[in-house]
Each structure stands twice: as structure tokens, then as C-alpha cells.
Design a protein around this nucleic acid. Sequence first.
DNA 1: AGCTTTAGATCGAATTTCGAACTATCCTTG
DNA 2: CAAGGATAGTTCGAAATTCGATCTAAAGCT
Lengths: 190, 190
Amino acid sequence: MEHKSANEMDALTAMPTNGHQAYFPGPAPREEPGETGSVAHLELVRCIERLHRRYLDLFRVDLMRIGADDLSPAQVMMLFTIGPDDLSVRDLIDRGYYLGSNASYNLKRLVEAGYVERSASPRDRRSARIRLSEKGRRLCELVRSVDEGYHRLVVRDDTELRELEVTFRTLRRIEHTWTDALRSGEARIA
Amino acid sequence: MEHKSANEMDALTAMPTNGHQAYFPGPAPREEPGETGSVAHLELVRCIERLHRRYLDLFRVDLMRIGADDLSPAQVMMLFTIGPDDLSVRDLIDRGYYLGSNASYNLKRLVEAGYVERSASPRDRRSARIRLSEKGRRLCELVRSVDEGYHRLVVRDDTELRELEVTFRTLRRIEHTWTDALRSGEARIA
DNA sequence: AGCTTTAGATCGAATTTCGAACTATCCTTG
DNA sequence: CAAGGATAGTTCGAAATTCGATCTAAAGCT
């Protein structure tokens, strides 16, 4: 019988060191001295996937409340990827790891909905300059203020702040590692 | 379109100076020594989104090499969500935060492709019992061995191991927080 | 037996993904 | 300068995915 609490393991808040017995594919949920580490890279990957899915649900609700239901969560995120800058589509793609045609697709909707302005670069007329419109900036501010609520839920003291910093730093490192791996992997193919 | 609640206009007229510790594309993606929350929740969210996208690219290549090109990355991840257990579809959904119809959709393909076995529960014949087939377990083993390579790239010493642990623990905490927020948020609506 | 729930599958519309063209503009180099 | 090639982005169409609305079967009441 499956007890649904399998997922819970609510020890999350109370568990001393290992909070991760919950999801375990392989044979042994326990750490194996000979093996890699107690937390496998793969577990982190799966966690990221779940978090991503989960956040989409959450964010969609918030967007509804805010009244920005003309954009998908991913599109709003794209606004933040643009940020205060004035950049080319290529830059946007590099920043967000978008696929070219997807970036175009989403950008088009952002422009149509008035959140983003686009103009041709004077230098190179192939290249587009994109930037947030006033409307886009306003939406970002709104989202940011909603997000502060989550920030407070997640960072309740100094320890948690430090943990968040470590987390962010580590994820950035992993991002970099993967990007390198992808590049060299593709190089091998090419 | 949007009718904005009162706080849209008046709130936040002043730009919070912290604004955007946006990371930069090419040369040096680096964080700023910001103020209070040098790392904002939102930045983490964006990082998770990027990582997710990035990993999909990477994983797809690996799957191709492994020869499991009959599954999408997400479907393979679902295998790991099932893991060594024998569970119901409901459990799977709870574990992975899937939408019911999506879980069905992916599960169907996993069953058709022979990675997952399904049978009716004897207790409750509405309920299905889901478990990996031998083929499914074999694929998981393969993926796991590929993943060890990434693990070694990411965890190169004790410090990095500890950081990974903090990261994992923190992400799990955030996952829990979001889940709560989502639940209570929907409660408010209902 | 009737009514309500629950487990899951399925259908269909809308959205998104993704690669293969395609357009337009640069940049070389002969 | 002209021809060929590289770049920046867009567009197109097919395939995959998402997501809510049913729909079926099997429980669980009372």
C-alpha cells in the first residue's frame, strides 16, 4: 500500500541533516560510503524540475491576481531576463538559454501586448534592440512586490539568508558547469 | 486586460534601489554585493527556470547517446519519480506535482514503450499499480551512471559537497513553502 | 438501491516546442 | 564592385505538450 505521506516526510522542517530520503530511485536511499555523496546530482536535478513545475502553478495564480493574465509565466520571466537593459535578441537568448524560434515567439507576444519595445539597431540593421516598455516595467515592479512576500516566507532569519546565498551561488556554478558540458559535448559532435 | 487594484499605481513609485542584480550574459555573470537580500527570492526562481531549460538541453543529448530517444527528458524523469516503488497514479502525481491528465499522458507512453508496468490494484480496482519494468530499471541505471559524471564535475571537494547539501536542503524547504502557499492560496479562492 | 466521491483515462482546443526554411543585412575576398 | 558566405531574426508547419472538461468504473455512504 502506498501511504501518500511518502512524499511528505515532513521532516523537512525538522530533519537534522538528510532531508532527502523521500524520492529515491536507486536501490539505496541511504548514503553509501563507497559511492558518490549523500546528495546525488541527479536528486538535485529532479528537485529543480519539480520546483519549476510547482512555481509555475504558483506564479500563474499570482499573475491572475495581478491581472496580467495575458502573459504566460514564462513570458513574464522573460521580462526579467531583459531587465533594465537594452539588448539584442541574441543577448536575450544567451541570457535565458532560449531557443531562437521560441524567443521570437514569446517576444512577439510581449511586443504585441505592449510590454516590450523593439527597434532596429542603428549600427546593424539586422539586429533588434529590445527593452521594456513602461507597461513592462510596471508589471515587473508588481511581480517583484508580490515576490517579496515569498521572500519573507523563505528567508526568516540570518541562517536562512546565508543558506539562500549558498544555494544561489551553487546553482549558478552548476549552471556554468552544464553550459560548459553542453558546449564541449556539442563540439564533440561537430 | 488588466484592471489594476489600488496598489498598482501608488505602490512602489520609488524604484527599490536594489532592483536587479541581473546577471550578465557573456563575459562575467556575477552577483552584486547587494544590500539586505543580496539574493532575492525572485533571482533564485529565475535561476531555477534557466537551469531547468538548460538541463533539458543537456539531458536530451545524453538520452540520444544512451539510445533512449523514444522518451522525452520529462518522461525519463518520471521514471525516477516512480523509483523502486509500487505506487498509484495519485501518488505519482503528488510526488511530481504533475497535472492529472499530463501524468496520464506521459504514463501512457511509458507503458507503451515498455518502461513501466501497470496493473489494477486488487484492493481497489479503480486504482492502478505502477512500477518500473526491467527495461525501466535498466534505463534508470544507465542514466544514473551518466549522471555520476556530472556529479563529479559539480562536486569536486568537501566544500562543494557541503554546499550541494545546503542547496538541496534549501530547495526542498522552498518546495515545501511553495506547496503550502499554493494550498492556502487556493483555499482562499474556494 | 440511490447518491456522492474518488481514481484515472480520454477528448479536443490552445499553447508551446523545435527545426527547417526564409529575409535581410552585413562582411569578405577576389 | 560582385559573389559568396556568415549573421540576426523571423516565420512556417508539424509534433509534442498542456490543461480543463468530460466520461467510465468502482468505491463508499446512508
